[in-house]
Structure formats: C-alpha cells, structure tokens
Amino acid sequence: MQYGMIIDLERCVGCHACTIACKAEWEVPVEFGRNWVKRLGPSKVGNELASTYYPGLCNHCAKPPCVDACPADPAEMTFKDAKSGKTTTLSVAATWKDPFNGTVQIDKSRCIGCGACVESCPYEARYINPAMVDDVSSDGKADKCTYCMPRVEAGLAPACVQTCITNARIFGDLDDPTSEVAKYVKKGAKGLEPKGESIGPNSRYYGKKKDMTLLFQESTPELADMGSVKRRAMMASMVKPAMRKARDLGLLGLAGAMLVKGLSEKKNDE
C-alpha cells in the first residue's frame, strides 16, 4: 500500500482553502504551512499564455531523503498494517517511511530539532516548529504533512481534501489499481521529481499540457547537497547529547548568567 495524493489542476482554482484548513486542523504556527499554494504565471509557454497553481505538500517519497538525513538515535518501532493487522518491528530514527502505508512520519518525542531533514527535503515541505519544545530539543521539532493519518485512521478524509471546494485534491492508495488516484496516474498524473533524480514523489499533478509545462518549468526542485546536510546532521547528533549533559549539570545556566552579568556590568559602568 502506498498512500498518495492527486492534485487536478484542471479543477484547482488556487483558492488556498487547503492551506488554511490544515493550519486550523493541526495548529500550525501562522508563519509556517504543511502545504502551500503558489500562483504561477501568466507566462508564455511556447506561443500561448498559461497561468496555473502549485499546490504543494509532503510527497511521502518512495526514497525520502529526509529519512536518510535524520541523525537521531535509532529505536525499535512496531508497525501495524491497518488492513491485515500484520505487524513488523524495525529500527528507525526519529523520522521514517511506514512499511505498510508508505507515509513518512516523525516521532516528535525523539526529534532533536537539528533541521537536517528540513534541509534535505527538496520540496521545502518540512519546517521546525519552534512551539514544540521539550528536554530533547529546545529549538523546536521538525514538522510536516502527515497525509492526515490520524484523520484517515478515524475514517475521515485529510483536512485539505475535505475542504477542497472543487474536488481538485484526491487521496487514496496508489497501489490499488481500482482507486481514483491510480486511475489518474494511468491518465498521466506526474510527481515533481528533483532535477535529474528519482526519489518517487507520491503527491502528483494532473492538468492541461500547457499548465503542466508551466508547473514543471517553474517548480521542479533541486536535491540539496546531501554531503553538507549529512555533515551538519552528524555534528548535531554528536553535540546534542553533550549539550544536554552540560545543561543537566547546570553548566549552561552558569555560563549564561556570567555572560549576562558581564554585559550588565559593562552597561553600569557607562
């Protein structure tokens, strides 16, 4: 099973309802979004004018670079197939691809907030939510679209799909040939692969030829330089536990106080 989403640009009118419904459903901070709508054109495509939209969200990729980038200590997790009830246990970092439904998810309690996954995502579908702070990370936690798994498990459509005013967003199992999403793929719905790469995005677009050309022309991303992302992630994972220890011993507090004191004494002298 592989959940996926189709966005039918013939139907989409670029109203942004998807973006706002998601914000309300998942209490996303004002300045971030788990999905977005970008307005493209009017621009020349060949000899004609075109104008369309790029409603984007996490692609829950077949080979998600964000999962590889996560430096958090792996932990054993048991996954369950919603249909058959079958379970399997895997060792995963703080973000993973679900072996049964194909979605990419995050364990907030284990996320160290280093931002490596955010940088590795070519679609900029992840952000660090600064409101999510705990003992593991004071910088916030990585956050993104979950394909509304909690809603789907409760028998509901994803929030963006439910509110879409023209039924331009269609959600379902791409592996099921009878599903509407699979039919769209057969008709030619395509994902936005990064330049020269093949990571298998599962949010896919369907539309008039000129609109698709405009979308791919203006919105095809590039893969981040994984070398530097990985290096940063490694450093973060090495440094974080040390910092935590330092904080536990009260060293950070002391250092902070001295720093403040120094500054304030200087002020007083003036």
């Binding site: 902070g256 106080a257 403040v260 004191k261 304030s264 007083n268």
Partner: peptide
C-alpha cells in the same frame, strides 16, 4: 534572577 545579587537593569 540570573544570579543572586546581580543587578537587573
């Protein structure tokens, strides 16, 4: 207080 006796300003 960041530290006892330290003057906030």
């Amino acid at each position: 207080e960041e530290e006892d006796g330290f003057q906030l300003n």
